[in-house]
Each structure stands twice: as structure tokens, then as C-alpha cells.
């Protein structure tokens, strides 16, 4: 299980990476915005994407849309972890095909729960 963590703040990437390590996911890659994330995804081998929304260059929602419109990435599970909390934004992300939505600040338990829920759906 290879997980790509995309956030423009390196602190947040470290937090998410460490939480993932706690959950047993040690194979992680990082990117600081959608623009740097896309080439990594297109190269292949990433099984799960965790992305922020508000990033310079290319935002998380644009990254999500790019993933969904790419034939070989369309089914990649995507979890959004973001401070963006407007209802219309959450609806927009849902419509763009996000698999889970966590608002910052979040707890380790929340992140764990959402990740497990996504995997349950994929497996089931």
C-alpha cells in the first residue's frame, strides 16, 4: 500500500505521515501541491491519495478532478484533509468524487476512522 500525501505545509505532511505509520502504512510519498502530485500519480504505483485543498499552483479540488478524469487513475481512492469547511465546498468535493472529507484541525482517531472506512468500501 503506497500512499501519496499532498499538502503545502510540510508540518502537516509530517503529521499525516506519522499517523499513517502508526496505522501500519509505512510506504508514503509526499508532494506540496497538485502540480507536483500529478506526475507522481501518473508514474503509477500509488494506491491511495490524501490531499489538502488550498495549495498554491494546483489546488486539491483540481487535483481530484484531474485524477477522476484520467482513465488509469479514475478509481484511485482520495481522502481530502483540509481547513476548507464551507458547506458548498464539501458538496463540491463530493460531486467531484472524493471518497472522504476530514476538516482540520482533526484528531488521529478521525483520520484513522475515515481511512478505514474508505478501505472497507473498496474491499467490500
Amino acid at each position: 500500500m503506497r500512499i501519496l500525501v499532498v499538502d503545502d505545509f510540510s508540518t502537516m505532511r509530517r503529521i499525516v505521515k506519522n499517523l499513517l505509520k502508526d496505522l501500519g502504512f509505512t510506504n508514503t510519498v509526499e508532494a506540496d501541491d497538485g502540480k507536483t502530485a500529478l506526475p507522481i500519480l501518473e508514474k503509477g504505483g500509488v494506491d491511495f491519495l490524501i490531499t489538502d485543498w488550498n495549495m498554491p499552483g494546483m489546488t486539491g479540488i483540481d487535483l481530484l478532478k484531474a485524477v477522476r478524469s484520467s482513465p488509469h487513475l479514475a478509481n484511485l481512492p482520495v481522502l481530502m484533509v483540509t481547513a476548507e469547511a464551507k458547506r458548498e465546498q464539501i458538496i463540491m468535493a463530493a460531486q467531484a468524487g472524493v471518497n472522504g472529507y476530514v476538516i482540520k484541525p482533526f484528531t488521529a482517531a478521525t483520520l484513522k476512522e475515515k481511512i478505514e472506512k474508505i478501505f472497507e468500501r473498496i474491499d467490500g
Binding site: 505545509f9 508540518t11 502537516m12 482533526f106 488521529a108
Partner: peptide, 16 residues
């Protein structure tokens, strides 16, 4: 340690 880790999330939010 997990608490300390999570506490660092402030840097992202306050930075924004």
C-alpha cells in the same frame, strides 16, 4: 507522543 504530534497541526492552520 501521538498527542504531541497532533498538536503540531496548529502550524498549518495558523499559517493559512
Amino acid at each position: 507522543l501521538s498527542d504531541i504530534l497532533m498538536a503540531q497541526g496548529f502550524q498549518d492552520i495558523t499559517g493559512q
